[in-house]
Nucleic acid binder design. Structure first.
Length: 429
RNA sequence: GGUCCCAUCGUCUAGUGGCCUAGGAUAGCGGGCUCUCAUCCCGUCGACGGGGGUUCAAAUCCCCCUGGGACCA
């Protein structure tokens, strides 16, 4: 039975590098029907906060990384003391100036058998004795991790390779405590664009920030998984795909730069595949936040129409925020024209004719709309091209968007003709 | 400074001695489709850090150098 753990310190938000480590552990557990343990390493009481714990849990929940067991390190101080006392009793640790020191063998070497990197050998005389318990009674990180991993029966320690150099110490401790040594997998670091290990000064590194910026969790998971892991030439993976395909053998050994241009593309790919009702739920608060559409207006729009809107607009959006902005089209709110509308005088009668025709026939679907509009224009001796851009600008406030008849159908003949008239009459004055 | 890890297009990566005049993706650029934008499709730019070996054959194995990173001090 495979047991893995993710053990963050609650001293700030969960950054994307940590999220990637959590993800790899989670994937390994789920792929092997193992157990995924979340352990909050809050022994540093000075810097640990409940707010950070909440943030971490929310980040994990957002990404869909559910855990099977939850522990807080501070609940385990008695176990830590017991283990340390055991080492003292057996002469494997000693006291000096109030602190407890672990005795490291002066000869031989300790070999880290890493599943990814292979065997890494450390000469013991380089390691030197180290403190496991400070004179104030608090325990050193390296000691606590080992005791916890041992007690929790962790079989695979999957963590960042910044811990590789600590691992021989850990192995020595496992052996001294007479507990089985877990297997180790040291993942390459995630780097900032300056190729140093990702940290807060690199800007947007908080996991939840990506949620707030309008990324889908499955896109984030996909992106994070591909940072260091690959499966042939495949790029787009659902969460289920990843669980099914994930394996340690396909993890890369070199660090990866976190650059979110590809995340944008992946997000679009996942938006295209996402369930429409779900997308609606996700963007509704974003649309309301923009301040022009009320809850009532959203309700009146009707689910079918909203879904059609999402369906038409999502191909041109990279994020949920983009989609929310685009969705304002469906509502009778004041237009916010991106460009000034320059209407030529000969276009005025055409626009009015179209408006009139729409009022008379009130077509509903795009096909009907197209027939009506093309017919009117033909009668006037004009082509669609002659009014396409102006009418798009008049009706949507934008130069670009879905097919003209599709947007018009979406907005509704009534509002379309009204807006055409406003523009045409504005010129006539 | 000591110890350790890593090294393919700008970025993410495929590649485990011959299928590599190095493949995919993304970003950039160009084109097609079209009322526009996007999607989509096609094309294009673009990399094995350097030097030695081993081998009939090296991106792939070995050594050195260089570079980057991490941990400890």
């Amino acid at each position: 039975m495979i047991r893995v753990r993710f053990a963050p310190s609650p001293t700030g938000y969960l950054h994307v590098g940590g999220a990637r480590t959590a993800l790899f552990n989670w994937l390994y557990a789920r792929h092997n029907d193992g157990t995924f343990i979340l352990r909050i390493e809050d022994t540093d009481r000075e810097r640990s906060t409940d707010a950070s714990i909440d943030e971490i849990l929310n980040s994990m929940r957002w990404l869909g990384l559910d855990w099977d067991e939850y522990h807080r390190q501070t609940d385990r101080t008695e176990d830590h003391l017991k283990a340390a006392q055991d080492l003292m009793d057996r002469g494997l640790a000693y006291e000096s100036e109030g602190a407890w020191w672990f005795r490291v063998p002066t000869e031989g070497s300790t070999i880290v058998q890493d599943e990814l990197l292979g065997d890494v050998e450390y000469a013991n005389d380089h390691l030197k004795d180290f403190v496991i318990r400070r004179s104030d009674g608090s325990f050193i990180y390296h000691f606590v991790v080992v005791v916890d991993d041992a007690d929790m029966g962790v079989t695979h320690v999957i963590r960042g390779d910044d811990h590789l150099n600590n691992t021989p110490k850990h192995i020595l401790l496992f052996e001294a405590l007479e507990r089985p040594v877990p297997k180790f997998v040291h993942l390459p670091m995630i780097l900032g664009e300056d190729r140093t290990r990702l940290s807060k000064r690199h800007g947007d590194t908080a996991t939840l920030e990506y949620r707030d910026r309008g990324f889908l969790p499955e896109a984030m998971v996909n992106f994070l998984a591909r940072l260091g892991w690959s499966h042939g030439d495949d790029e787009v993976f659902s969460r289920d795909d990843l669980v099914q395909l994930f394996s340690l053998e396909e993890i890369n050994k070199s660090g990866a730069v976190f650059e979110d241009t590809k995340l944008h593309w992946l997000n679009q790919q996942h938006m295209k595949r996402a369930d429409l009702d779900r997308l609606l739920d996700l963007i509704k608060p974003l649309v309301l936040d923009l301040g022009r559409v009320s809850d009532e207006m959203w309700g009146q729009a009707g689910n079918d129409r909203l879904k059609r809107g999402v369906h038409l607009l999502r191909d041109r959006c990279k994020t949920l925020r983009d989609l929310a902005v685009a969705m304002e089209l469906l509502f009778p709110v004041p237009l916010n024209p991106v460009d000034d509308i320059l209407v030529q005088s000969e276009q005025v009668p055409l626009l009015l004719a179209v408006a009139e025709a729409l009022e008379e026939t009130t077509p509903v679907d795009p096909g009907e709309l197209e027939n009506v509009i093309r017919e009117v224009l033909a009668c006037q001796g004009a082509k669609l091209k002659d009014v396409a851009l102006v009418s798009r600008l008049a009706v949507t406030g934008r130069r670009a968007g879905p097919g003209l008849f599709d947007v018009f159908a979406l907005i509704g003949a009534e509002l379309v003709s009204k807006r055409l008239r406003v523009t045409a009459e504005g010129v006539a004055e």
